[in-house]
């Protein structure tokens, strides 16, 4: 029974692994700390696995847990380095190329985008991640716990900031 549940859980994590991977990389640039954050997110997802409220999309529920854990970790471990290589190999999630080798070099534009996200404060970072994931304003509002109007206003402000940040590119 427990094994069934664990298998279902592993399948679910596999289906949604990109969510965890992106959140971990955005909140935790340091490789060693990243492993801890990955594990803590997995543990909290497991603990809440039976409490999943199907009135929400599974991804909404997962985003809430992963972002909540990531922000808690980030606030506890401010000493995290901001100079790490964001896309290096992680323990639970591995990036490999088509030939199975570690993928070390990623596109410069993606790194730039990641740097922009990393430099936002904790809550704006969550908002930005969700916006770039093309979540609806309604879903973003549900995950963050603010109104739809508020989401729209804040996204507008971040867009202006983005434009300024990237105007020389």
């Amino acid at each position: 029974m427990v094994s069934d549940k664990k298998d279902r859980f592993i399948r679910t994590i596999d289906e949604h692994k990109k969510i965890i991977y992106k959140i971990v990389n955005s909140y935790c640039p340091n490789r060693e700390d990243r492993k801890d954050l990955e594990q803590e997110i997995i543990i909290q997802l497991w603990k809440s696995f039976d409490k999943y409220d199907d009135s929400y999309k599974y991804s909404t529920w997962m985003y809430r847990i992963a972002l909540n854990v990531a922000i808690s970790f980030y606030r506890k471990e401010r000493k995290w380095s901001l100079k790490g290589d964001f896309y290096d190999e992680a323990s639970i999630f591995n990036m490999v190329d088509e030939n199975g080798k570690d993928e070390a070099v990623l596109d410069g534009q993606i790194k730039l985008l990641q740097t922009f996200i990393t430099n936002l404060n904790e809550l704006n970072k969550a908002l930005m991640l969700l916006y770039l994931e093309e979540k609806s304003y309604e879903e973003i509002a549900e995950i963050l716990g603010i109104t739809k109007t508020n989401v729209a206003t804040k996204i507008g402000r971040i867009k202006v900031k983005l434009k300024k940040e990237f105007e020389n590119i």
Binding site: I10, I13, S91, I92, F93, M95, V96, D97
Partner: peptide, 12 residues
């Protein structure tokens, strides 16, 4: 990520 991100089930 769709192409290259793999879950390490053993580690999990």
């Amino acid at each position: 990520l769709d192409r290259n991100l793999k879950l390490n089930s053993a580690a999990l």
